[in-house]
Write a protein that binds this DNA or RNA. Structure first.
Lengths: 231, 231
DNA sequence: TCATTGGTATGACGGCCGTCATGTTGCCCA
DNA sequence: TGGGCAACATGACGGCCGTCATACCAATGA
């Protein structure tokens, strides 16, 4: 359940990749590995942010519950991404929840040990700052995107982004290896499951975009471009 | 147009308040003051983020344009708040724009000088990290709020927040000393100016909330509580 | 004095989309 | 084989709210 990571594994994590081997060895001393099943909660909104977490393998959705009880997905993280960086520094409660989308392995460092590491290497602090900055820019973008545009437009933009980030030519189109339920698509775009189903069903019929067990296949990217541009 | 700040002025800025007097003196050496008229642009989305800025007096709206051309206000900053912190560290372009809401005085530190300061005092780095963290949590909250709730609910939540943050008992209710146009209210809540006007007009008639030259007066807080709780 | 500009106000119309209800399909397990 | 469950699907209905059009008011200035 809780074992030390080796160097090979640490190098997979963005924040630690550029450290000196000696420094990575010190990280390895205080880090622990933990495994999660699909659907497990890594932390919940409001929990004490007293641990730094990074994803080694698997995928995790970070979401926040709206006052109305719906949940909205802020981001989906994968291997190499840090998780608890937002809260660990100021010892704030986590502002959102994290749940695994598939079997996932995480690396954890307790707050006190993490602080000691920060003191020993300015590169770590720089990495943290960079990470926060990027995340802030990303959230800013999502905020602007969620507001105003029609739901179909948001769907089109979501899939275009997935295409560009992780898509690869395959199966007669562009394959996006990211299985997501209709509910998760709805949470990503800030709508309801019914509306998500309607849009996906129509695109399925029109052969714009097919849903498969292990992801999606975009068959007509121009159609998505057009939908994304609309109003 | 561009003069050195004194220590009294530096102590007004959150990030510098807790520094040692000697350190603040070094900050004073490299900082410059600049004045802006109401409506002036401090920086625009996409500009090079090569300067750290903090507000000395006045109010500034930070907003991002949606793909559709509308603008959505991310936050309104006042005296003491930092402005360019997001971008200066990684030398990224600003993810949003900043425009003054009233005559405003800003303190500016060029990137290179700012980096030298960061190297000299870990307290500055800690302050930066804390600031970014808080801002991230705030943005996260706004994202969840914008999604799903009705516009009137968002308006109610906005004014409740303003009440709690800067309201004071006065004029037969709670006075919020923050003049905002209908358009700015719309940009804060992610709606259109017409809808903003309709809601504000109704609340004005029902004596829930009055608009005045220098802000707003909340007369029936329970009515706002009720509207904020709705679905 | 009149034109111009910017902010505020109000009505009509219509479509998107949230809500509710019902049905189907696939899968696991006894 | 059948029951139960989760995910997917589809239709009906209605209201919120975005869009367009018009009007009012105050401040400014030639």
């Amino acid at each position: 359940m809780s074992l030390q990571p080796d160097d090979e594994l640490l190098r997979r994590i963005v924040l630690f990749r550029r450290l000196s081997p000696g420094m990575r060895a010190r990280v390895a001393e205080v880090a622990h590995l933990r495994s999660y099943e699909r659907g497990d909660t890594i932390f919940s909104e409001g929990d004490a942010g007293d641990v730094f977490i990074a994803i080694v393998t698997g995928r995790v959705k970070v979401f926040k519950s709206t006052p109305a009880g719906k949940e909205i997905i802020l981001e989906i993280f994968g291997a190499g991404d840090p998780l608890g960086a937002v809260a660990v520094y100021d010892n704030l409660p986590f502002p959102a929840s994290a749940v695994t989308l598939e079997p996932t392995q995480c690396l954890r460092i307790e707050q006190a040990a993490f602080f000691r590491l920060l003191e020993q290497d300015p590169a770590l602090v720089r990495g943290l700052l960079s990470g926060l900055t990027l995340r802030l820019a990303e959230l800013t973008r999502r905020l602007a995107e969620l507001s105003g545009a029609r739901v179909e437009t948001r769907f089109a933009r979501l899939f275009l982004k997935l295409c560009d980030q992780i898509g690869r030519p395959e199966r007669g189109g562009v394959f996006v290896p990211m299985p997501l339920s209709r509910q998760e698509l709805a949470d990503l775009t800030g709508t309801t499951i019914e509306t998500a189903i309607r849009i996906m069903s129509r695109w399925q019929k029109e052969d714009v975009l097919h849903t498969e067990k292990d992801g999606f296949v975009v068959l007509q990217r121009p159609a998505l471009d057009e939908a994304a541009a609309a109003s």
